[in-house]
Design a protein around this nucleic acid. Structure first.
Length: 590
DNA sequence: GCCGTTTTCGGCCCGACTGTTTTCAGTCG
């Protein structure tokens, strides 16, 4: 999820005053950097893995460095990794890393990103040809020196050159929203191939990760070669990485090039295959360990028994049941620790728990449909109540409502509510928090509304202090009920206005405000880690679509799935509540 | 490098594909 960062752009471990300030993050980064360097020296992969694992153990531990008095006795931290930590704590730097840095040129590290090059091959290039950077690698390829090395050939040389050409041109990962249409397009292509019996997108996309580096499809067929050919012919393929009877790996031309893997399996293998390729990697490792303890072996094809026979399953449900586990939704399959949280699955938020949407727009501001049309569409979705929340006057580009127009709208909402059966329509606003930290409507007008959302849509680049002053103005106003899209981020495009989210969550807890998980796939704001913190602090969350049209009401599902990633309990999700409970929660003076 | 404790040595998740081989190592997911 995070961008991979390399030591070169990592910034110094020294603070401005030159004093060494070692925190947990630095220890984690150091361990990871050591692993990276060892990989390039062709070290034993298990040794490399041990350093990665130690970093992971620290990351996993919720405590800060100061709270960890037993850091050296944690499982996964031993003599070698412990020495690095001790070194860092005592001297502020790692002797081992220093040594490794002297042996490994900085320029080698980015080369790990070139497909087909791993630690061993890069080590060889360095040792045999003195390659120490992307530039020297390019020169060596152009001089045809690389193909002379044992283990390399003409083809490797060409592939490396092509990869160097594309270096930095392509983003590592694409946002979920950008992949969605590609998934749909590929689904249609698969549907049209007669030899395909069924298919399922898996991978991090199925886990509703906000960014994915590729797409993985499991395809059930009896004729993999035919399907392989048909896919290659029907898709806008701009490159093929691997092609066989079991898999096809291609790069597909979309808005951005997208890497797509297809795995061909039989009907019996389907459940095991989708589990395997949905991951996460760490989840799979954990599952395999559990299998191993029982004398079994999990692969993408099934569960191998001690006698060599292979069990297959009708569904992922049955697969988990075989290990005496409940079904874990893809969204919670993360670092493997989820397997210890089976008792929380019962209360985990599910799409069918949602009974309202508290943030949507109509033709009154920048929406596409009328109040009645939105309400009727929500009724179709089975909701019991909704809030109409058009923009306020400051947002001119969105035709924001003046106080006069808002009063007119209130009348119209009341009227629509009395006319449309089967759903309660509430009056609200999405009111701007202005750049000067005042609110767009006065208290008197706000008191006439059922639900007040406050949001920032302007002057994102203000210093954090000012942004927080604005958010505080909203949070501390007794009429404001919720802060929408609290950071203003657009995934993969912009970071938003970078508030101090931890502080905002504290305030929300203190002033009894709701924070939004905006379900628009472009936003998914708040992000996962903040949702976890909000849950810890007992701050209620509303999952809202912010729909500007009837079609966008379907964003709700993505929002709920994303919320599962943060293990949100349905009881803390405001829009699972009944209308009565919702109104009594709001219960402010009117 | 780390772990276990019916193991202090011998594992560490598992399999497909590629490119370079003439039987397999390396990379990748």
């Amino acid at each position: 999820m995070q961008n991979e960062s390399f030591p070169s752009d990592e910034g110094s471990f020294l603070s401005e005053r030159g004093m060494v300030t070692v925190n947990k993050k630095i220890i984690i980064k150091t361990l990871e950097e050591i692993a990276l360097h060892m990989e390039l020296l062709g070290e034993n992969p298990f040794k490399v893995g041990a350093f990665r694992k130690a970093a992971g153990v620290l990351e996993q531990d919720p405590r800060s460095l100061a709270e960890m008095d037993d850091i050296l006795s944690l499982k996964g931290i031993g003599k070698g990794t412990g020495a690095v930590i001790t070194d860092l704590l005592e001297k502020g730097e790692s002797e081992l890393l220093k040594e490794l840095r002297e042996r490994v040129p900085d320029g080698l590290i980015p080369l790990l990103k070139i497909p087909g090059l791993g630690g061993k091959k890069i080590a060889k290039l360095h040792k045999e040809l003195g390659i120490d950077s992307a530039d020297s690698l390019r020169a060596a390829c152009e001089a045809c020196e690389v193909s002379k090395l044992a283990g390399f050939g003409k083809k490797s040389e060409e592939k490396i050159l092509a990869a160097l050409e594309a270096f930095g041109q392509r983003p590592d990962k694409l946002p979920h929203w950008q992949l969605e249409p590609v998934v749909r397009m590929i689904g249609n292509v698969l549907d049209a191939i007669p030899e395909v019996n069924r298919h399922q997108v898996t991978g991090s996309y199925r886990r509703t990760a906000e960014m994915s580096s590729d797409l993985d499809f499991i395809v059930v067929t009896k004729e993999p070669e035919r399907v392989n050919e048909a896919l290659a012919a029907a898709l806008p393929v701009i490159g093929t990485d691997a092609s066989g009877a079991a898999k096809l790996s291609v790069t597909v031309d979309a808005d951005e090039p997208v890497d797509v893997d297809f795995r061909f399996v039989t009907e019996e293998q389907f459940a095991s295959a989708i589990h395997h390729f949905t991951g996460s990697k760490d989840h799979n490792v954990r599952m395999r360990q559990i299998a191993k303890e029982r004398g079994e072996k999990i692969s993408e094809y099934g569960v191998e028994q001690e006698d060599g026979s292979v069990l297959t399953f009708d569904s992922e449900n049955d697969f988990f049941a075989h290990f005496d586990l409940p079904f874990f939704p893809p969204t919670v399959r993360k670092d493997g620790t989820e397997l210890e949280r089976a008792d929380e699955l019962e209360t985990l938020i599910r799409p069918e728990d949602i009974r309202s949407d508290l943030h949507m727009h109509t033709v009154w501001s920048d929406g596409a449909e009328s109040i009645r049309e939105m309400a009727e569409a929500c009724r179709e979705l089975g909701y019991s109540h909704i809030v109409i929340t058009d923009h306020s006057r400051y947002l001119r580009v969105a035709n924001g409502l003046t106080p006069e127009r808002l009063r007119d709208q209130i009348r119209e909402v009341r009227e629509a509510d009395s006319e449309v059966d089967g759903i309660k329509i509430l009056c609200g606003t999405e009111m701007d928090i202005l750049p000067d930290a005042t609110l767009d409507f006065d208290d008197e007008l706000l008191s006439e509304l059922d639900f007040v959302i406050a949001s920032i849509h302007s002057n994102f680049s203000q210093p954090q202090e000012k942004i927080m002053e604005r958010l505080f103005a909203a949070v501390s106003n007794p009429h404001v009920d919720m802060i929408a899209h609290p950071t203003g981020r657009i995934i993969g495009r912009r970071d938003g206005y970078s508030p101090d989210v931890a502080q905002l969550i504290e305030w929300a807890a203190e002033y009894g405000k709701i924070l939004e998980l905006n379900a628009n796939p472009y936003r998914l704001d708040l992000a996962e880690e903040w949702l976890e913190l909000a849950a810890e602090k007992g701050v209620p969350i509303a999952i809202n679509t912010d729909a500007h049209s009837v079609g966008q009401l379907s964003y709700m599902e993505t929002g709920v799935l994303y919320a599962q990633r943060a293990w949100l309990n349905r009881d803390m999700i405001v829009n699972t509540w009944t209308l009565d409970r919702f109104l009594s929660h709001l219960g402010r003076e009117r």
